[in-house]
Amino acid sequence: MKFLVNPSKFNEMADYLFRPLLILSIILFAIGLLFSFYLSPDDYQQGSTVRIMYVHVPSAWLALLTYAIMTLYSILALAFRIPFGFIFNTAVAPIGAVFTLICIISGSLWGKPMWGTWWVWDARLTSVAILFIIYLIIIFMNLSFENRVVREKVVAIFILIGSVNLPIVKFSVDWWNTLHQPATISKLSKPNIDPSMMTPLIIMTFAFILIGIAIAILRIKTEIISRKSYLS
């Protein structure tokens, strides 16, 4: 597991993994899109718009997951002085921002026919919007500091403070009575979703995870190389 904290080990592993990951994610995307557009039934209430869910839900999960992993790496980097954490944070923040943006856009595309409006000031939507702004601030911070040592540590501190938003996003549907529907799939109880809809959702989630990892590998490798050229 050393490749998760060591840049040179990560490089070796990345060369080994990148191509299979990319191919696998493309195949999964093809299958998943096929399933979600043609091989899954319409919802009896939402009709055909339910298919937006197959993009919306995986991207929302991944937006949260990316931030959680960034928080973990910030703790590693600040407390245990593992510089790979800083590299990871710089590289991965835009990916998380894009996932959040996909989540927001697909959500409001779904909201227009279902709720009759693009945007509602509901706890879930607002907290996800704040998550997006936090991602943006992280990216801007990465762009606007001149001193690298200060920049990466300040960004790590900011990520740690901003992580208070994660539980708010996750539990907002349980804590407040909101328009957004509560989670249908949770670990503790049996999922109340039909298997015919479950299959494309799971396939799409894995496709998103794999494409996310593939892009992250590319970006982390670029970041490592740019640091090396900066040093010499």
């Binding site: 936090i134 601030i137 801007f140 606007s144 500091f145 001149e146 001193n147 920049r151 900011f158």
Partner: peptide
């Protein structure tokens, strides 16, 4: 204190306060 070394983007400090 985060933005002490940030010479370019002064407004970022206010944005950080407002988001929290």
């Amino acid at each position: 204190s985060m933005n002490l070394m940030n010479q370019r983007n002064f407004l970022l400090g206010s944005v950080v306060v407002m988001i929290f």
